[in-house]
Nucleic acid binder design. Structure first.
Length: 272
DNA sequence: CGACAATGAAAAA
DNA sequence: TTTTCCTTGTCGC
């Protein structure tokens, strides 16, 4: 379940459970065994997220060793109270101490990196709406000069970090923007509104650990519709609602393949 | 730009 | 058993 809000929430949760402790570090699955041996019983001193990248900092007296984690499409993290169960052989990384454990499985990346390597990752990522140091103008600089569709640009982590397939579909709907509009046809005011909305939506996503994008006036209760039956847990306008009636205009939500990703939008509410 | 792999689990068939 | 997925790097045209 990885978009940026998930990763920022994980940074918080890793910190809450393990910051300042020196947990046992293991890699039952084996792919991270060498690094795990180096980190075993080292103090976790920092956790950080940038876009969909998670960083766990260990030791940090002279130099910090960083574990770089990217969940990819189906990486998952699970926290639990001690005693930790016998690890399944799919657990890439386990931290465990007296009272808690956390398991990571199926990540696209889990590697021990240096501070310089970490910086290189920051350098190739665009501004992240969830980070205080983010500069939305840097993103707009690229958007406003691109002939690529705004839907593709929102997914380009070099342009803006942390937005995934759900947030891009939802934020474009909320602003009535056709996903196929070219980046250079997005006005500064529109970009500012998109950015501010992403900041608010993603912060709420971190808080609730799920994506909700439907405004109060469009909830099922407010619209007199039957309660939502949804497999995702969150309340959304268009994501994975192909052929279902739009919550606002009642027209059919459309879907299309865009660079191997499923795009969803309401052609009536989102005009070219 | 499209195809595909990597790698795990849950949902759909 | 097959498909799908809130990702992305790489390969080939």
């Amino acid at each position: 379940m990885p978009e940026g809000h998930t990763i920022h929430r994980l940074a918080q949760d890793y910190a809450a459970a393990f910051l300042g402790t020196a947990p046992r570090v293991t890699s039952p699955q084996g792919k991270f065994s060498d690094a795990a041996a180096l980190l075993d019983r080292a103090a976790l001193t920092r956790t950080e997220a940038h876009g969909k990248h998670l960083f766990l900092g260990f030791r940090g007296f002279h130099a910090t060793d960083w574990v770089h984690i990217h969940l990819g499409l189906f990486g998952k993290v699970g926290f639990g109270a001690a005693p930790a169960p016998p690890p399944a052989d799919t657990v890439r990384l386990r931290l465990a101490h007296r009272t808690a454990y956390v398991d990571l499985r199926g990540p696209a990346a889990c590697a021990l990196i240096t501070g310089a390597e970490k910086q290189a990752i920051h350098d190739r990522l665009g501004p992240d709406p969830l980070r205080e140091d983010a500069d939305p103008d840097r993103a707009y600089h690229r958007v406003s000069r691109s002939r690529t569709t705004v839907a593709a640009l929102l997914m380009d982590q070099k342009v803006i970090a942390g937005v995934g397939n759900v947030y891009r579909a939802e934020v474009l709907f909320r602003h009535g923007i056709d996903p196929y509009r070219a980046g250079r046809d997005i006005t500064p005011a529109q970009w500012d509104a998109l950015w501010q909305d992403l900041v608010a939506l993603m912060r709420e996503g971190v808080r609730n650990n799920r994506i909700d994008t439907v405004r109060p006036e469009h909830t099922p209760e407010a619209m007199g519709r039957p309660p939502r039956v949804d497999d995702h847990g969150g309340e959304v306008y268009v994501y994975r609602r192909a052929n279902l009636p739009c919550h606002v205009c009642g027209g059919a939500i459309r879907t299309a393949d865009l660079a191997a990703r499923n795009l969803f939008w309401c052609p009536n509410c989102q005009r070219p």
